[in-house]
Amino acid sequence: MSTPVYGTPYGAESRHPGWPAKPGPLLVTAGAVALRPVRLRDGGEWSRIRLRDREYLEKWEPTAAGPWTDRNAGWAWPAQWASLRSLARRGQCLPFAITVDGAFAGQITIGNVIRASLRSAWVGYWVSSELAGKGVATAAVALVTDHAFGAAGLHRLEATVRPENTASLRVLAKAGYRQEGLFRRYLDVAGAWRDHYCFAITAEETGEGLADRLVAAGRATRP
């Protein structure tokens, strides 16, 4: 027997606690990593990076209708941005741009936000290939997790990663997430149903915060 989650999605809370916001920065090898809400004017750089990084990104992202070049063209961004902004205003996600020294460098999103007695969501992210291995993704995950468990009032976050994606596995482990299990044939990625590891973390596990933990471990510094 499963346990039902009682209550309305938002109850008496603010409809979108923790949004908008600008978490950060943290200083890593690549520069100053910070988060901010996605903007309409991000479209040009968003498209440039994603078209350039197709080989780097496409093999890890869910299969979607239409060719990559169309889905990531500059003209495709306004609709995506409007959808993300609408979900954020309804309290269903927190969509952030990742910036390095103020420049757009990727995205990180807290999605499928459920409140009431669950207070759970997932986290997903991507970062420019030029910044891979320079601490950007790990810093972004730490910042967004601290924000989710602080101002946004959540209790648990999950992230799913293909077993072959060793870089993302390292990011989650360094940020402080733990592996919980394996989801068999979980998502249609690159045209086939793929297994994914499930990583998770709860508010009680973060102590003073994941960003402070990175600083204490020498993986980042405060400005």
Rank of each mutant, 00 (worst) to 15 (best):
W19V: 01
L182V: 10
E204Q: 14
G135Y: 00
L214R: 01
I98K: 02
A79E: 15
V127E: 07
L154S: 04
A217I: 08
G31W: 03
A167N: 11
A79W: 11
A190E: 13
R219H: 11
T145S: 11
G91M: 04
G31M: 06
W77N: 04
A203S: 07
E164R: 14
Y10W: 07
C198I: 15
W75I: 11
T99A: 05
V141L: 05
G176R: 05
R50Q: 13
I110R: 02
R219G: 01
A79N: 12
C93V: 05
R194C: 13
A73K: 12
V136W: 04
T8W: 05
E45K: 14
V100F: 03
T69Y: 10
L143N: 09
L51I: 07
Y10D: 05
F149I: 00
Q179F: 08
L87V: 00
V113C: 01
R222Q: 05
P78V: 09
D101H: 04
P17L: 00
R185L: 15
P223L: 13
L26D: 11
E208C: 03
L26I: 11
Q179K: 15
P78A: 09
L35D: 03
G43C: 09
P78N: 08
V123Q: 05
A79R: 15
A73V: 13
R36W: 02
R48Q: 11
A97R: 06
E45Y: 04
R50W: 06
G133R: 09
A139Y: 07
G7D: 12
N72C: 09
Y125R: 01
G91W: 03
V100P: 02
P25Q: 03
G209S: 03
W81L: 04
L157N: 04
L118D: 02
G31A: 06
G135N: 00
A152V: 00
A76H: 10
G181T: 13
I110T: 14
T138N: 08
P25W: 05
E61K: 04
A192Y: 10
E180H: 12
G111M: 06
Q107V: 15
I110N: 05
L187C: 06
G153T: 00
L51C: 07
G66Y: 07
G74Y: 00
R41Q: 05
T3W: 14
L57P: 12
A116R: 07
E55Y: 12
W81V: 01
R39F: 00
H147I: 00
E61Y: 02
K174E: 14
K134D: 02
V215M: 01
R15M: 08
A148C: 10
V28L: 07
V5Q: 09
G135W: 00
A32F: 14
K174M: 13
E180V: 12
L143Q: 10
S117C: 12
I98T: 08
G207I: 10
A82V: 10
R48V: 04
S83Y: 13
R194V: 12
A103D: 15
T160Q: 06
L94M: 11
P62Q: 04
F149A: 00
R170D: 13
T160G: 00
V189K: 09
R178T: 15
R41T: 10
G176P: 05
L27S: 14
R194L: 08
S129P: 06
A30R: 00
R85C: 09
R48N: 08
R119M: 03
R170W: 09
T8C: 01
L26K: 06
